[in-house]
Structure formats: C-alpha cells, structure tokens
Design a protein around this nucleic acid. Structure first.
Lengths: 197, 197, 197, 197
DNA sequence: AATGAATGAGCATTCATTCAT
DNA sequence: GATGAATGAATGCTCATTCAT
C-alpha cells in the first residue's frame, strides 16, 4: 500500500522556499540548494516535484498572482460604488492595512527582472500584468469619458503600483508610510475627471 | 614617451558592454565573457580595469544616473515657470521625444533587481533614487502647501516613473504610446492642487 | 492462502523493460525510472525484485543467451549432416528468416560495451561468448583437419557474427540484405577446406 | 603580449585522456573529472577547449579514424598486386605486427556502442565505417566478378574486422594469437573466387 | 596594456537506491 | 507485493577571477 501522495503540499512548500529565497538573495542567489534549505527539504526533492527551477518560478508567479487576486477581492467586497471599487482595487494591490507582505513584493520585483531573460517567465509575468490592467480598465470605464481614457488611466495605475513595488523592495524608506494608496487615488482622480465628486 | 593611458576610455567601453549585455540577457546572462564580447574586448581586460564584476555594475549605475541627469537638464533648460520645471523633470525621466533609450531602461530594471542581492549595488541604486526624489521634491515645493505634501508627491512621482521603466522593459506594449508623460502630469496635478492653473 | 508469488513473472517484465530501454537509449539512458516505465511498472519495484541495476543487466545477458540458444536449436533440428549443422548454427546466430530481433541485437552490443566497465558483466558476457565458441568449435571439428584449425575457425566465425551484430546495430544499411549468412558460410568454407564438397 | 596559443596541443591531450579513460572505464565511467585527470589537466579546462563532452568524443572518433588510415597506408605501401593490397588493408585494420593498440580498439568498441544513443556520434561512426567499406570495396573490385560481389565481400570483411575489435576488447583470449589476419584472408578468398591463385 | 589559458568553486540536474506506508 | 516520495552523491557545465606571457 503506497504512502498517500503529498505532492501538492510539497510543491507549495518548494514554491514558498523559492519565494523566501528570492526575496532574500535575488534570482542568482536562489540556488536549488538554498531553496531546498529554505523549504526544509533536500535538494534532490525539488527536481522530483518540478521539472526545472524555471517551473518553480512559474508556479511562484501563479502564487503571487493568486494572492493579489484574493487581496483585491477582499477589498472590493466592501466597495459600494464605482469609485470605491477602483479604490479598493488600488488598496488591494498596494496591500493597505494588515496583510502587507514585503517578501512577496520583493520576490515580484525579482521575478519581473528575470522576465527580461527568460521568455517563459516573461510570458507569465505579462499575463499577470495584463490581467491587472484589464481589471483596472474595467473599473475605470464607468468613470471615464471613453475607452481610450480608461485604457490610459489603467496603464498609469498599474505602472504606479509596479513602481511602488520596486520602491518598497529597493528603498523601503523612500515612500512616506501610508501615502501610496492616497497617491494612487490622486492619480486616478487626475486621469478620470468623472471620478471626482 | 609612454603610450598615453586609455584607461578611462576602456572603462567606458566595458561599462557600455555591461549595459548592452544586461539589457539583452539579464544579470545571470551577463557573464564577463559576454560583456567583454559585447564591448569588443577580451575577458581578461575587464579585470585589468575593474576589480570585480560588481565594480562594473556600480560604474553602470553612475552612467545611467549621469544620463538621466543630462536628459533632465536638457528638458529643464526650456522650462519657464515652476510648473514647467516639474513637467520638464518628468519628461526627462520618461525620455519624452528623441533620445529614448530602451536598453538603458531595461538595464536599470535589472540593476534595480540586483540591488536586492548586493548591498553595495543597493546603496548605489538608493543614492540615485534619493537624488531623483530630492530634485523632484524641490520642484514640487513651490506648488505644494507644505513640505509633507511635496515629499509625498515627489515619492509618488518617482514611483510612477520607476513603474513606467518596469512596464517598458517587461511589457512594452502595455503603456499606450505617448501616454506616460501626460499621466505623470496628471499625477502631479492630482497631488499638488497648486499645480493646477 | 497467500497470494501466489509472481516474482518470476515480474523479474522477466523488468528484464524485458531493460532490453527495450537499452536498445533505444543505450546504457546511460537506461535509468531505473525509464526501465520501470518501459516495463509498465513503478521504479521502486525494480529494487524489490533485483538487488541492483547490474543484476538486471546480468539477467538480461542470460535472457539473450537463452534466446540465441533456442534459435540455434531450432535451426539445427533441420540439419542433416555436419556441414548443415554448422550452417544452421550460423543461421541461428545471424537470425536468418523470421524471428529476427533488432532490439535484442542492439541490446547485446550495448551490453558488450558495458562489459568493458563492469567486471561482473564482463564475466557473464565472456561466458556467453565462450559457449558460442565452444559450440561452434564442436561443429567445426568434423570438418577440420585438427583441433587448432577448428579452434581458429570457431573464433573467426564468432567474431564475424559479433561484427554483424555491431553493424546491424550501428549502421543497419551497411550489410546487403540477406548477405550475412552466405558470407558466414564462405568464411567457414575458406577456413575449413573439408567443408567444401 | 599574449601567451602563444597551445589550443591544438591541449585539445589533443584531452582527446588522449578521453581515449585512455574510455578504454578503462567505458563511457559512463568517463566523467569529465576522470578525463581531465587522465590528461593531467583540471576539469574546467576541458570545457575551455571543447564545447561539450560529446565534442571530445567526436574528436576521438576522428583520431581513431586517422590512426586506422595511417596504419592501412603503411601496410599498403608494401603491396605489389591487387590481392596484396586487399590483404594489406586487412592487416592494417587488424593491426598485424608492431603498433597494435589495445586501448584504441577498446575505445572504438565503446564509441560504437555510444553511437546507439547519440545521433551525432552515430553519424560520425557511420561515416568512418562507410569509408572503410568504400576502401574495402575498391580493393575487392579487381578480384570480383561484379560490383555486387565486391560489395558483399567488403561488407563481410568490415563486419569481421569489427567483430575482431569487439572480441579483442571484451574477451582478449578468445582469438588465437595471430589468427585474425589469416582468417580475414580466408574470408576474402571464400567470397572472391578470383582472389585465389 | 593586453591576452587568453587556467583554475576551482558552484550550478542545475540526474539517478541508483532506500524505505515508510 | 507494491508504491512513489525521499536521499545525497555525482555529473556535465559555467563562470568570476588569476596570471604567465
């Protein structure tokens, strides 16, 4: 009688090990040895559960995307009108309130840079960015005069969020505490006249 | 008569080789061999002119900072009032008009991610970011009610610029052509009521 | 009543998996995983039935020897005189007619090369070669003037057969179809004057 | 002023290290470490002079082919008629007299088996076998009734030589000393009636 | 100044073997 | 009997760095 499969659990542990290691040591420093150690596993096991290190990275992209989606949903649940929905989206992306996750932010920045090198990672990252932009655009639409305005606003908002991630990862003290979300709203207001009261 | 030292010239060639290689292959892919090849030099020469690969990276950070400074100055030369100076700063950062340099933008994103790993690089990158933020803050001051508002605006503007860099490097099609600078101005306007006419 | 042991059956399945895998992927490519997969079994099972991968290889040598023996016997059953018995031996070795087995031939060549590395395999392979040579020598004796002539002829015939195996495995098109057995007979005729009518 | 290039010399040393290691340890046992050690070099150097281990193997195939060609030429220089040329070819292939090289023979057998796995090696090995067969066929032609007879004889002779290599590598005692060349001639005589006086 | 051969540590990955279930 | 997760040593290969020339 075989042992019950724990593959899913192990895969998650490995991805979390990758997350921690990336945040601490960057992609170069994320050797399989270190990832395994961070996950409390032996190096050989990573390749038993994943075909390659890149697969682990792709799984991490999915994990980070899923976490972002969940955070956004949580914030939007409380929103009562179009404007609040957009603000909730921004709050979720910028991790306002409890649940901020500096490791995830840093890892995302590292993954983003790695995308420049590896086409598969690039595709995955672009897919996530595109999904954020799409959702953002949908939320901008009701507040915009037309589609082009909404698209521009969505692009700017996602870029701003991305920039906050980088600043948080590289120079955490550069953004005055608690100012990211208000700034994001100001950006939205500036780009979507209809968003103003 | 000894042959004149060409050290400075060689150093620049090497740094430019690093720039090209980083933009194309990321940091992992930027082996000394590849950098040397991109610079049209031999591998041994890099370590004749630089103590380590990291030193080349630090020199690249300086080069990119210098280029940004020059671009900003060029744009500000035409500015006639406080508001235009701030806009010129943003235009320069976002490389509006001729002189856009995708390689430099991509290399900067890579360097930024590498900063997560190497403390010395982090220090250099943070210094550059801080200088941008300082200049930005000075330009915001005349349009802001007080120092805190200016600081917040400056932080937001730099973050937005950073985010545009990342988007340009990773998902070049995500930002509607020509929309970055107007969006940046909208952000400034949103954060600095005095900036509006 | 305990469930009946199927060890022998399983062992054979594993050996056949090894045979197929060796023929397709060589010895390097014959990982336990692949062998198990080729046999439709799980990796762990191989080491339940065999102490080591080498043991599987040794069992394969036996299987190939047994198959050769059976083929020779089948051919010799129709032989009516000394000369025909020798020819039947050669036909059997060279797999004349139906029952040619390219996989077995290829696997034999791989096993043969592996013998260079592993003393135990070398011993097993040499034992098989010696048995072929012994049988061949016995069949040459009646046609030879003396023992030495028979021994030389036997050695030459086995070498020729071996050579045909290698050619069949490595360069299948190099031997004109149907020419191996006649050539072997010509070799026998050339070495054993008494073999000629 | 750079050091004078010693690449050709180093490449040869590495190939000879591969030759020695293959003969002793087979292909599996021929790790880059062991090859380097056998050549008196450090492991990293192998990949400085060769793109991959396979390239070393391909260079070895060329070396072995060149050695065989030289041996054949040496023997043929003394031949005085068609029959003697064919015999000289066989003597050269079977390394009659001084200059026998057991390591090369064993390495060739290993390379041959490796050809089953690696297409590039297979192509190189087949090219060498084909060149032997072509030369052999040309030498058989004058002694044969027609082209087909010559082709069959050539194939058989090359197969016999191949078989002798395997026997020499795997079971060195199986071939009575000094009997290989005479047996080869007997094979030629049996297949090419015109070869007989 | 410049070269490119040389070094050796480190990398991702593979694999025979073990073993709890 | 059978499973497949787990192990850890070994592999081919890369690379920053050194250095004789």
């Amino acid at each position: 009688m075989p042992r019950p499969s724990n593959t899913d659990h192990r895969r998650e542990e490995i991805v979390l090990g990758m997350l921690r290691t990336l945040a601490e040591h960057g992609y170069d420093g994320a050797s399989t040895q270190r990832i395994a150690h961070a996950a409390g596993l032996t190096p050989g096991l990573i390749h038993y559960h994943f075909a390659s290190k890149q697969e682990v990275l792709l799984a991490l992209v999915e994990l980070l995307a899923r976490r972002a989606r969940e955070r956004i949903e949580k914030h939007r649940r409380r929103a009562k009108n179009d404007r609040e929905h957009l603000h909730a989206f921004l709050d979720g992306m910028l991790q306002v309130g409890a649940g901020a996750d500096p490791q995830a932010v840093t890892a995302w920045v590292v993954v983003t840079a790695e995308a420049i090198r590896e086409p598969k990672v690039a595709r995955a990252v672009r897919a996530v960015l595109a999904s954020w932009q799409r959702e953002s655009e949908q939320l901008c639409m009701p507040l915009a005069k037309d589609r082009r305005v909404a698209a521009k606003a969505a692009a700017a908002l996602v870029a701003f969020v991305q920039g906050c991630f980088v600043q948080a990862a590289v120079a955490p003290d550069s953004i005055p505490s608690g100012s990211a979300a208000p700034s994001a709203r100001a950006l939205a207001d500036g780009l979507l006249p209809g968003a103003r009261a």
